[in-house]
């Protein structure tokens, strides 16, 4: 965001115009973040609303160690995760059937010898591929989906994700790997032999 210092000064002075400008410049992106995590429009809007209110009320405590947009992003992520924690937990589906399988000698059971024949840059130009990827991410069990979204899409560090999720950094690394493996398995039958 342009002129973070000026924006911060205006926000700290409590000018409503400054609040509104930040809401309008960053709000849509923040709503997209909350939607990805919550997959529920009403909850996503609530999470963003609560996050902005919390951010504006605590703007005096913002130390300026990062961009305002980064700080806001972390508050929105936290707000969405709190909503997830508040949901009634259902037993998660196992993920093992989406992970690679091995014979006793350690070789792969399946042979993914076919490449996907096109780079991500080419594949993502196709609407059906983008929808396939988004739909496949939604199919992942929540425990794995959250880590994948926080690390790969929202680009939090391992340590940031671990802190927000209340798990160890090592657990984040392992869950992320398994989530990517599961996603790869879900995409594989659709993208095998996909010609550019």
């Amino acid at each position: 965001m342009e002129g973070d210092e000026e924006v911060l000064r205006e926000l700290r002075s409590g000018r409503e115009e400054a609040y509104e400008r930040l809401l309008r410049s960053e709000g849509a992106r923040m709503l997209a973040v909350a939607r990805r995590l919550l997959q529920n429009e009403e909850e996503a809007r609530d999470a963003v609303q609560e996050a902005f209110i919390s951010a504006f009320r605590s703007i005096g405590r913002f130390e300026g160690g990062c961009r305002i947009s980064t700080w806001l992003h972390r508050i929105v992520v936290n707000s969405a995760l709190m909503k997830l924690r508040g949901r009634k937990r259902r037993p998660e589906e196992p993920i093992e059937h989406l992970l690679p399988r091995f014979r006793d000698d350690g070789h792969q059971v399946e042979h993914p010898s076919l490449d996907w024949h096109a780079s991500a840059d080419v594949l993502v130009e196709r609407r059906e591929v983008r929808e396939l990827v988004r739909g496949s991410i939604e199919r992942l069990p929540e425990t794995y989906r959250n880590v994948l979204i926080l690390r790969d899409i929202e680009e939090l560090t391992t340590e940031e994700a671990a802190k927000l999720l209340g798990i160890t950094a090592n657990a984040v690394k392992i869950r992320l790997h398994r989530a990517r493996q599961a996603l790869r398995t879900l995409l594989d039958p659709h993208l095998r032999g996909h010609q550019a």
């Binding site: 990805r36 840059d121 983008r130 988004r134 991410i137 899409i153 996603l183 790869r184």
Partner: peptide
């Protein structure tokens, strides 16, 4: 290769 493409697709699709 497909693992790395998966990560790139996640980011690009989002």
């Amino acid at each position: 290769e497909t693992y790395k493409t998966t990560i790139a697709l996640e980011r690009a699709a989002a």
